[in-house]
């Protein structure tokens, strides 16, 4: 839930070095858009790709790959 999806992503990104990749698993549709947007805005990371890993209706999960800036 917002803003915790971004908070946990941010905390993890802060521990990475530039160029390293973070995989984030999300089960909340609006976070799939908001998390990478906030990462970009704060110059933390760039979105590489999004993958729907669980397409089951009502239990969708997405995997985001973010590259630390």
């Amino acid at each position: 839930m917002c803003p915790m999806t971004f908070v946990y992503t941010k905390l993890a990104l802060e521990k990475l070095k530039t160029g390293e990749i973070l995989e984030v698993l999300l089960d909340f549709r609006s976070a799939v858009k908001n998390v990478p947007e906030n990462c970009k805005r704060q110059s933390l990371a760039e979105l590489l790709d999004v993958r729907l890993v669980n397409p089951k209706k009502g239990a969708e999960e997405w995997e985001l790959r973010l590259k630390k800036i």
């Binding site: 803003p3 915790m4 906030n38």
Partner: peptide, 23 residues
Amino acid sequence: ELSEEQIERYSRQIVLKEVGGIG
């Protein structure tokens, strides 16, 4: 290392660009 309770408690300022976990 921030605890789960601390991450939750300070989440609204950790979110800020100027603060973060480091701040």
